[in-house]
Write a protein that binds this DNA or RNA. Structure first.
Lengths: 254, 254
DNA sequence: ATGTCTTTGTGAACGCGTGCACAAAGATTG
DNA sequence: CAATCTTTGTGCACGCGTTCACAAAGACAT
């Protein structure tokens, strides 16, 4: 997954496990789709399939929220949508600022998924003076100088960082100082924040590297399982084994 | 985190735990930065701080790769960079296709993090005929009709889906049929794939919802810890407590 | 009202991941 | 060469998360 919590040592909040919280949006999405199709009730089995999880896990997840199901029938879709929304805090309005309006920032500003669930893009902020005033996704970009006043005037508590890595920590510090307590970080850097501030990171490069690892492993297994007679030379070398350490050159391409 | 594995039931590959694999790119990034500053060696403590993890965890992670450190000294930066790169499969070239060249797809195509580590954008694919031929990030966009031939001709095994949710499963099916075995999915949908295909998803909306949950909890705690005399009315209602279920209206805004 | 059938809610067992704490290893100094 | 000091590598314990499997609960039919 592209994310990972940072700081805050798994303080299970009000008894709802972190892993469950991470799945609630998934259930909510599936439930919303059912709701739009006017499906009145759904069983744990069906909903689990739609959300791509195990049905036992889903039931246990819901049990942390309370007993909202009816045995022999299933869950009331509308009611569950409401309960999960409330639990996630989506029944209230969350103003969000996006800092760094490059390609990614613009994509985020245009992303419909933001507005659809209580998240409102309160402002777009960029350090480039040339960007100031230019509208992106219908919202005029404001200069970084305005950052503090924007945060405070709008009561923003969630910030999205889409700046280059070099600027991320500085932007983060300013956001936090101005009152932001939750940060979604797209910059490839480790952010350090004071206690009480949540950071989630989305790192495209890391995701790809994890995929590459599994891809390589698959290729290795396949090669090993091949005729097992063909000399290891799928591309360069089997890449799977090689002397425990030996004298491989301590240099690399990238 | 924004991601989560799908399918493939935690088959610990060659003894390297999944959690460790997910952290290797983090270490690699920190090590690369040290390498550029020509730092010869680094202790687990220093590197752990740079990567934002516990030093014991880091040492255990490295122990799965082998004993590459020197007691009393630390780890050789260059050597470790090489070993992790090799383990992650970054010493070889990974051609990648990006399908769906909207705002997000264009942002991904322009993202420098791709090219920097063995990942090469082999092609950009979009369903819109008007996009065909138009260069994005210096690469001409090709039409979806070409998808299969592009995959096969370039030996692409990793695909990135940045299409609208509605098109994602169909694109996924075609990618898999053409030979792709690893998919990075940005579309807000659960993809179903055959065994042997890895899917990782990055979901901006889910990340924000998780942040909102914690944000709400923080607001609730703070309100409760306030003077504890002021009647609960921070915004709507305390949102933290309320009858076990009661007769709340089964309707919601969004 | 009684019985059957479906589906929830959860107790219990298991496995993975994390972090402590320390022994082993090697570098370094005298 | 011996003593000391630093830092790795890991055994162990603990807690979280997942999954199984089943009893309890309610719907539904007769």
């Amino acid at each position: 997954m592209a994310t990972g919590r940072t700081h805050r040592p798994a303080t299970r909040s009000r008894g709802i496990p972190e892993a469950t919280v991470a799945r609630l949006p998934l259930y909510l999405r599936a439930l919303t789709a059912l709701s739009e199709r006017s499906v009145p009730t759904v069983s744990s089995e069906e909903l689990a399939a739609a959300a791509g999880v195990n049905s036992a896990k889903l039931r246990k997840d819901f049990s942390y929220l309370g007993s909202y199901g009816t045995r022999g029938v299933g869950y009331d879709v509308e009611y569950l949508v409401y309960q999960i929304s409330r639990e996630l805090g989506l029944t209230q309005d969350w103003p969000v600022v996006i800092v760094g309006i490059g390609n990614l920032g613009a994509a985020l500003a245009n992303y419909g998924g933001f507005a659809s669930r209580g998240f409102r893009v309160a402002a777009l902020i960029d350090a480039d003076p040339a960007m100031a005033g230019r509208p992106v996704a219908g919202i005029p970009v404001q200069h970084t100088d305005e950052l503090e006043s924007i945060i405070m005037d709008n009561g923003v508590s969630i910030g999205v960082i889409a700046t280059p890595a070099g600027a991320a920590q500085q932007v983060c510090d300013r956001l936090v100082a101005a009152g932001v307590t939750s940060i979604l970080n797209f910059a490839p850097t480790v952010l350090s924040v004071p206690d009480g501030v949540d950071v989630r990171k989305v790192d495209l490069s890391i995701e790809l590297q994890i995929l590459a690892f599994h891809e390589q492993r698959k290729a290795g297994e396949e090669a090993a399982a091949d005729t097992a007679a063909a000399p290891a030379a799928t591309r360069k070398q089997s890449a799977t084994d090689q002397g425990p350490d030996g004298d491989v050159p301590a240099v690399m391409p990238a």
